[in-house]
Structure formats: structure tokens, C-alpha cells
């Protein structure tokens, strides 16, 4: 039968493509436990040496601390801006709305390299280069559109009459925001916090241009790649993967749990 033959071919190609997508991740994790100096086959035996090496590396530890700090602050700011923008798009109509939304949503479409260069040159005028504040300012620009998209999708599920009903019952718009809109958006707000933290934690181009000597963890990895390539990068990579995948997983869990709860 013709159908079976084409299905097998399609399934085969799908598996090969997924192997290609997952191969780098698997390689990083597997070789982070490999004893050999050079990561290749055959397997050189199990070892935790590379983890020990990075845990005692002061530059890595400091970079890790800075990345966590930046990601935490960025996620809160970006989620607030994303929420505010999503709510404006949901609730109001005004002239220039398209321009407003373009300003809010376009940053991720500009290559981060160009954002980095633009921010480096402009931030040097206002003394933000070489500071974590500069990195945070840049990361919030990059991250808030992701928060906006997640929260806007959630708002699309909210009946527009819900707010109207609250207003008619005498609630002010501020109290209605607090007791109706915010609780409704809560799952999306938490996913947005997780996703924006993941994006910021991984971002290295803006950070590389703007951070100066205050290297974040990905900038530290970039510097290691430019120098002597070392299996320690596998160990850092595994830790970074675990953190970001945990954040993405958390975000997806929060989004799907809310959907399940509301399913009739």
C-alpha cells in the first residue's frame, strides 16, 4: 500500500530532523561527565571533574550570580511592561495605536547584534556602559514583547463584558483591574516571568556589548569559546540548560494547567 510507504518515509525524516535538533543538547550533557580532556568517542569514563572545575572558578561563579540577578530584575520589569502593553491593546482604541504596538513589539525582530551595537553607542552617552543597569535596560527591551504576547493571548480569552459588569456594579477601573483583570491573567503573568527570565539568562550579545567588565555567565562562555576550548563549557552548558529548560517547562506547565482547570 502506497500510504504505509510514504508514512514510513515521513516518520523517518522526522526522526532524523529531531535527532539533529537534539544532538547538540545530548552531546553537551553526555560529555560534561566524560573524563577525557578531549570530548570524543570512545567514552573516557565517568567523572565530575569538569563540574568541580567550574564550581571553583571564580569568574564563572561571579558571572552566574550576575546572570541570576539580571534575569530576576528583568523578568519583573519586562512582565510589568508586557502586561501594561497587552492591556492597552486589549482595552483601548486610539490614533497611533499601530505605531505604539510596533514600538512595543518590534525589538525581537532586530538582530541582537545590531541592538547591542546601538545600545553600546547610545548608552555610552548616558553612562550606562559597563554597568549591569545597562544590561537590564537592554534585556527588558528584548524580553517585554514575549511577556506581552503571552498575556495578550490570555486576555483574548477574557470576556470584554467582565470588566463592564464590574464597572456597572460600581467598581472603579483601578479596583476592577486589581480584583478582576489581574487574577484572570495570573497564570499568564507567571509564565511570562519564567519565559522572560529564561530569555535574559541566555542572552549574550547585548550583554557582551554593554556589560564591559561585568561579565554575565553567557558572556563568560563566549570568552571561553574565544580562548582555549575546554570541556568545562559542557558542564556550564548542562547547568544552563537545566535552568532554562526548567523555566520553559514551568511556563508551559502554568499555561496548560490553567487550560485544564477551565475545561468543562
Amino acid at each position: 500500500m502506497r500510504g504505509v510507504w510514504t508514512d514510513r518515509l515521513l516518520g523517518g525524516v522526522t526522526i532524523v530532523v529531531f535527532l539533529f535538533i537534539l544532538a547538540p543538547v545530548a552531546s553537551i550533557i553526555v560529555f560534561s561527565f566524560n573524563a577525557d580532556r578531549y570530548p570524543s568517542l570512545p567514552w573516557g569514563g565517568f567523572s565530575l571533574d569538569w563540574y568541580r572545575a567550574i564550581l571553583t572558578d571564580e569568574t564563572v561563579r561571579r558571572g552566574f550570580g550576575r546572570s541570576l540577578q539580571v534575569a530576576a530584575i528583568v523578568s519583573v520589569l519586562a512582565t510589568f511592561i508586557g502586561f501594561a502593553t497587552a492591556y492597552v491593546d486589549y482595552r483601548f482604541r486610539f490614533t497611533g495605536k499601530l505605531a505604539f504596538l510596533a514600538l512595543a513589539a518590534l525589538p525581537p525582530t532586530v538582530p541582537v547584534l545590531i541592538l547591542g551595537l546601538a545600545m553600546l553607542s547610545f548608552f555610552s552617552l548616558i553612562d550606562l556602559v559597563g554597568t549591569l543597569t545597562g544590561v537590564i535596560a537592554g534585556h527588558v527591551v528584548l524580553c517585554s514583547p514575549f511577556a506581552m504576547a503571552l498575556i495578550r493571548m490570555r486576555l483574548a480569552e477574557m470576556s470584554p463584558d467582565l470588566e463592564g459588569a464590574a464597572w456597572n456594579l460600581g467598581a472603579t477601573r483601578w479596583s476592577c483591574m486589581r480584583s478582576v483583570v489581574l487574577p484572570f491573567c495570573k497564570p499568564a503573568i507567571f509564565s511570562a516571568l519564567a519565559i522572560t527570565a529564561a530569555v535574559s539568562f541566555d542572552e549574550f550579545m547585548i550583554a557582551w556589548f554593554v556589560s564591559g567588565l561585568n561579565e554575565t555567565l553567557p558572556v563568560r562562555i563566549l570568552a571561553m569559546l574565544q580562548g582555549q576550548v575546554s570541556p568545562r563549557i559542557n558542564a556550564i552548558g548542562t547547568i544552563v540548560f537545566v535552568i532554562t529548560i526548567a523555566l520553559v517547562f514551568l511556563a508551559q506547565f502554568l499555561t496548560t494547567r490553567k487550560a485544564d482547570k477551565e475545561a468543562p
Binding site: I28, P218, I221, V229, G237, I245
Partner: peptide
Amino acid sequence: ITPFFTSYLVRVYAWMVI
């Protein structure tokens, strides 16, 4: 969706090794 949010830099390093 997951790779989109996981370090591209580290994945490129993995390809260097592979």
C-alpha cells in the same frame, strides 16, 4: 519550543565538538 529558549551559544559549542 524548548531549543528557542536554551543557550544557542552552548549548542554551537556542541557542534564544534561534534
